[in-house]
């Protein structure tokens, strides 16, 4: 009898345990159904973009490799520039020609976005600056890559440190141009502002409590009505001053 009871209690415990397990499994799957991850695409943790430039005058645009831009993480911030090779002398001459003729120095960076839509090869985003201002700033420029949250490149902007062009042709031809001194930044989409209802409601609560605690205006009587008391006193003093001397004069004569 005892053994039977023991057995049955063990069995009951087993059943309960298994029931519990099943219930847990059900709940787990159910809740996981409800948990939808917010970001559907993979987060790229680092970004490396080859940058190309065009330094030739004339109608045909030829882009040659300039280097690469590396970003360690996709947070707003700076990256690094690595030049693939120093500028060859003939390239340097082309650049000087471009600057002398007032042409445009262009740069471009590939982007994934175009190729998603069309089945062409890589699409590029490009920008430009005046070639003479690049030389003016001694090959120092600032490159900003504009990207959205998932790391897709939307645009590039390339700006010289000094935007004016004051060097003469002789000065230009005397320059030695080999490496670029580039500061690289990554600019991402900023989340838009939301009406700040939380902070406001808290502020309202605080003020309400304060008002309750403070009570009514309890400055002294004088402090409230000094504006009216002073002129009356002055007036009395004046009329009192009149009486005295007159009284004195009348008494004297």
């Amino acid at each position: 009898m005892a053994a039977y009871i023991e057995n049955s209690s063990k069995a009951a415990a087993k059943i309960c345990f298994q029931l519990l397990l099943t219930v847990c499994v059900i709940f787990a799957t159910k809740t996981s159904k409800r948990l939808v991850s917010d970001d559907g695409d993979d987060i790229i943790s680092s970004l490396s973009l080859p940058i190309q430039h065009s330094i030739q005058t004339g109608d045909q645009l030829v882009f040659i490799e300039r280097g690469s831009l590396n970003f360690k993480s996709l947070t707003h911030g700076t990256g690094s520039y690595h030049q693939s090779s120093a500028l060859m002398p003939h390239e340097s001459n082309l650049l000087k020609e471009l600057a002398a003729s007032g042409g445009l120095y262009r740069a471009r960076v590939p982007t994934q976005l175009l190729s998603l839509q069309t089945s062409e090869d890589i699409g590029y985003v490009s920008s430009y600056m005046k070639a003479c201002s690049l030389l003016e700033s001694n090959m120092s420029d600032e490159v900003t890559i504009h990207a959205d949250q998932s790391g897709q490149v939307l645009g590039i902007s390339i700006l010289p440190i000094k935007g004016t062009c004051t060097k003469s042709i002789d000065e230009i031809s005397a320059m030695d141009l080999t490496t670029f001194n580039t500061t690289v930044t990554l600019s991402l989409v900023v989340p838009g502002p939301v009406p700040d209802t939380q902070a406001y409601l808290e502020k309202m609560e605080e003020e309400r409590l304060q008002k309750k605690a403070n009570g009514t205006d309890n400055r002294s009587f004088f402090a409230k009505y000094w504006m009216y008391i002073i002129p009356v006193v002055l007036f009395l003093m004046i009329s009192g001053g009149q009486e005295q001397p007159r009284g004195g004069g009348g008494g004297g004569s």
């Binding site: 600056m129 959205d148 939307l154 645009g155 902007s157 700006l159 900023v190 989340p191 838009g192």
Partner: peptide, 21 residues
């Protein structure tokens, strides 16, 4: 998404977005 773009150089001066809007 709202972009502020300088149309002479293509510089995206500012970009901001609003979700569930």
């Amino acid at each position: 998404t709202v972009y502020l773009i300088d149309v002479v150089t293509g510089n995206i001066v500012f970009q901001t977005d609003h979700k569930r809007v």
